[in-house]
Design a protein around this nucleic acid. Structure first.
Length: 574
DNA sequence: GCCGTTTTCGGCCCGACTGTTTTCAGTCG
């Protein structure tokens, strides 16, 4: 059973407990455990086999027993009993915006509603307004919520949300002189791989005017909620945007609060309470006395912490690290000396070798690895060994042109469905760098696909495993590959794992990056560009690496050229 | 249900907005 599946069951239990009306803290405990399991970075089954369930934060005696039963037998009797008690359709009502546990319970008990379709019918027939606590307006809100549910858009990639946020910030600043600072916060500022909605905030002496202006921007399709300091709107694209406005002297606490994550904030507030302080977006309070925080640093310093980079704010150890002054010096785009994975029009890329090389050089890179596909990937015009030789001649020719920049010839070699590599060893040996990737047979079962990757890593000429999980955000789940095993073997063979910055890949995921960093497995942050603009994607790879606590020393392409060449695997095997 | 150099019991973050309420409950983040 995967971590995600276990986490889903725990979250479902939490939902059912809330509908039952159990104390909310019980449900919270299940959700916290679910989060910690999902982001564990290792297989829950392994942890279970080692008898270390209790070491997972948020898992105590009771949950450890229930998880043991689940992993041992595939079923959890507590969960099965709850399912008998509460129909699954009632739990599904919680997916509708505006419907929470109380409303779900109410309509189930009073009207026998057990599905979203039934809820919709009841709303249309005006039955909801007859229930205690609900009126005509609530009924309309729920109906609107159901419509939103039906056309709900999935989370969108970070790279899609960022320019939208930038445009809104610009538009708001131009539309009113009262918006002083305007910033994107939330998961966007934390650079999560996907974004649910956009959180903006502004400082102003006249918050109400800023809110008013914002809700009238031409980008806004619908105003969902509007108060003196806060509003929620939907853009024409269906994307939800929240705006929160406070005066400048409270901007630091507002920025901190709105950046989240929720779990990080909860932990910070707990810390504040220990110091006799109460923390909110307005600042600190000690009794009646207020401590204002115009800058975000003020919030952290008041709590005796170093300022924590937003990418780390997930309550996964960053607060303890900040307390002890051992936060990592996270890798930055400026540390990157070259891109190790780009395609050209020799395979499925759009630009020539020369064009992309010049573009990389203009970025200040010291080197660039041309890594077109191998011939097995026919649809991508993969290179035969003969064409590879022709390409080498061109690369050699181009290299005479620069003294400050070097082109390397690599390849993205297919790991075939049977586990063999798409070029023979003598061809691999002729390349400066070899990336081995899986593009086919991604749905193979765990043992088989893991064996393929490990076989590739054991080949002395393979330097990097490209996009190790094979996920495509919003389209394809990660493969069943046993990432724990991949990490172990990578440590043993010195194989580098790629952090692919392509916006819909972002693969490795930050959770595994963190694990790699802890284990001392090296990373390569690459763009996997297929055209000149694609080079920009490396920035998102950097963001993922930062979320995974990676420092420059963990990333091979922060090295100068000579050191990079020394670090590559082949030099040890020759 | 978890958790503990002030606690093994009694806490568990804090506030905005909305609607149906004459003082607060529900939902959301």
């Amino acid at each position: 059973m995967t971590n995600k599946e276990v986490a889903e069951i725990l979250r479902r239990i939490a939902d059912m407990l809330e509908i039952k009306g159990e104390i909310v803290y019980k449900a919270l405990a299940y959700r916290r455990a679910a989060d910690n399991i999902e982001y564990l970075g290792r297989d829950i089954e392994d942890v279970w086999r080692e008898g270390k369930l209790l070491e997972i934060p948020g898992v105590g005696k009771s949950l450890a027993e229930k998880l043991d039963e689940l992993l041992r037998t595939g079923k959890m009797s507590f969960y099965e009993e709850l399912k008998e008690e509460i129909p699954p359709g009632v739990v599904s009502l919680l997916q509708v915006p505006e419907v929470g546990p109380k409303t779900a319970k109410l309509v189930w008990e009073k009207l026998g509603i057990t599905s979203i379709q039934e809820l919709e019918r009841a709303a249309r027939e005006g039955k909801l307004r007859t229930l205690p606590g609900l009126g005509v307006k609530s009924e309309a809100k729920i109906l609107a919520g159901i419509e939103a549910f039906y056309r709900r858009s999935e989370r969108i990639p970070l790279a899609t949300a960022l320019p939208v946020a930038k445009e809104l910030i610009k538009a708001l600043k131009e539309a009113t002189p009262h918006a002083l600072k305007v910033t994107a916060a939330g998961s966007l500022r934390r650079m999560k791989a996907t974004i649910g909605d956009i959180d903006l905030l502004a400082s102003s002496h006249k918050p109400e005017e800023v809110i008013e202006t914002f809700t009238r921007l031409p980008q806004v399709a619908e105003v969902s909620m509007k108060g003196p300091t806060k509003s929620t709107v939907f853009l024409h694209s269906g994307l939800q945007v929240d705006l929160r406005v406070l005066p400048p002297e409270r901007y630091g606490s507002l920025l901190q609060y709105f950046t989240g994550s929720k779990e990080h904030n909860v932990a910070l507030r707990g810390l504040a309470l220990d110091m006799g302080l109460s923390l909110s977006e307005y600042g600190f309070k000690r009794g009646e006395e207020e401590i204002l925080c115009p800058e975000e640093e003020d919030v952290y310093h008041t709590l005796g912490l170093e300022w924590i980079p937003p990418e780390l704010r997930e309550n996964r150890g960053e607060i303890e690290a900040a307390k002890e002054g051992r936060l990592p010096r996270l890798v930055e785009l400026g540390d990157i000396r070259g891109d190790l994975h780009v395609h050209t029009n020799w395979s499925d890329g759009a630009s020539s070798i020369e064009e992309i090389a010049e573009a990389a050089r203009r970025r200040g890179y010291q080197y660039l690895v041309i890594s077109d596909h191998s011939h097995g990937l026919g649809i991508a015009k993969g290179l035969t060994p003969e064409r590879l030789k022709e390409q080498r001649a061109i690369i050699d020719e181009l290299n005479r042109r620069w003294s400050d920049f070097r082109l390397l010839q690599g390849a993205e070699v297919e790991i075939r469905a049977d586990g063999s590599l798409d070029y023979p060893d003598e061809i691999l040996a002729s390349l400066d760098l070899v990336i081995a990737s899986i593009h086919t047979g991604l749905r193979q079962e765990r043992e088989r696909i893991t064996a393929r990757v490990i076989n590739a890593m054991r080949n002395p000429y393979v330097d990097i495993i490209g996009h190790p999980s094979g996920r495509i955000l919003g389209q394809r789940e990660e493969s069943a590959v046993d990432m724990d095993e991949v990490l172990r073997v990578a440590k043993e063979t010195g194989t580098i794992l790629e952090v692919n910055g392509t916006p819909d890949r972002l693969d490795l995921d930050d959770v595994y990056i963190r694990r790699a960093v802890e284990m001392g497995v090296k990373l390569a942050i690459d763009s996997d560009a297929h055209n000149l603009y694609g080079l920009d994607s490396l920035e998102f790879g950097v963001a993922m690496a930062r979320r995974g606590w990676a420092e420059p020393k963990d990333v091979v392409n922060t090295l100068p050229l000579e050191e990079l060449l020394k670090a590559l695997k082949r030099n040890r095997h020759h």
